[in-house]
Amino acid sequence: MRKGIIFSVDAILGAVIVITLFSAIMVLSLSEPNAGTEQAILYTKATDRALAKFYVHGALDSVPTAPNVNCNDIYAYGDKGELKKDATGKIVPEARGCAS
């Protein structure tokens, strides 16, 4: 053995093969062959519950008079009729309108 060499090339190669083999086994063990169908069932159950809640528990606080829009900046008229920024990032009924 030369100075400074702890493991031979053969030993390192052997260790790499063993680690690769066990890694492959671990990865294959983690796979879930049922995952797709179980996901579909969970999705269906979640949809069912959401729909039932929509009908029975009153999903909305009130029936909106107009669709809501998300405005970046909202402007309002001031006392002298000038236009000034009223609020930022506020959800308002579409009827009110927003500058951007």
């Binding site: 009908y55 009153g58 999903a59 606080d61």
Partner: peptide, 16 residues
């Protein structure tokens, strides 16, 4: 019913 305004109970119209 969806607005929670049913006169008595929504379950009367839509039973779970």
């Amino acid at each position: 019913c969806v607005a929670g305004l049913y006169p008595l109970d929504c379950a009367g119209a839509f039973g779970q």
